[in-house]
Simulated scan of single mutants.
Amino acid sequence: MSISKAQWADIEQQLKGFYVNVKFTLSGHQIAVQKVRYKENQYTLRVYIDGVWKGLWMSGDKDPEYDPIVKQVWRRRTRAVYSPSKKAELVKGLGKRRAKEYFSRLDDVIEYWNPDFKTAASLVRQFKKIDDLALVAEPVNANA
């Protein structure tokens, strides 16, 4: 069952709150989103797959327990091997041809996946694109 626009708006409002615990199901996995402390005065939305996240999953399929679902629910990030200033310094000092010869990874980019989302809107944008994502209804506590 797909998630409606009204439900997505409600999910985004929940994610903007202080206490966040939103759960989804996808391909037999439970996807949980919680707000966790990231730095001293900074919080982030972290995505857990079946209640865990592993640092090895960030770099791809190097872990035997790696599941390709990570690429769907975590945020894709890239980083250049050499910063633009370092690259310019090398090209200026050695010339473009020698810099490429000595530093073969000069233009390479490293790709990794991060379980943390800075804003609720960015998480909702990514999750809206996932097919077969279903919201798990939490029982309402009448005493709360």
Rank of each mutant, 00 (worst) to 15 (best):
V81F: 00
G55H: 09
G93T: 03
Y43A: 08
D67Y: 05
K100F: 05
N141H: 13
M1R: 11
P84H: 00
L123E: 06
R105H: 06
V22A: 06
Y82I: 01
D67G: 01
D63P: 03
E138L: 12
G93L: 11
G60D: 05
D10G: 06
Y19A: 14
K5N: 15
A80P: 02
I69H: 05
S83E: 03
I31P: 01
I11F: 08
S122C: 03
L123V: 05
E138H: 12
V47F: 00
L56Y: 08
D10W: 10
E101I: 00
K96Y: 11
Y82W: 05
G17D: 12
V47Y: 02
L123C: 05
E101M: 04
Y48E: 02
D10A: 15
S59K: 11
K62D: 11
K118A: 13
E65R: 13
Q30F: 10
F127H: 07
L45T: 04
K23P: 00
K16L: 10
F103S: 01
Q7K: 13
Q7H: 11
K39V: 03
I49Y: 01
L90I: 03
D116K: 06
D50M: 10
I130R: 09
T44Q: 10
L94H: 07
E65S: 15
K5I: 03
K87Q: 11
I110T: 09
K96T: 08
Q72N: 08
K92C: 00
W8R: 06
E138Y: 09
P64K: 10
D61S: 14
Y82P: 00
K86R: 12
L90Q: 02
Y38E: 10
Y48V: 03
I3F: 11
V136F: 08
F24C: 09
A88V: 01
R125W: 05
R46C: 08
D108Y: 04
K86S: 04
E111T: 15
N41A: 08
K54V: 05
M58V: 00
P115R: 02
Q14I: 07
F117C: 08
R46H: 02
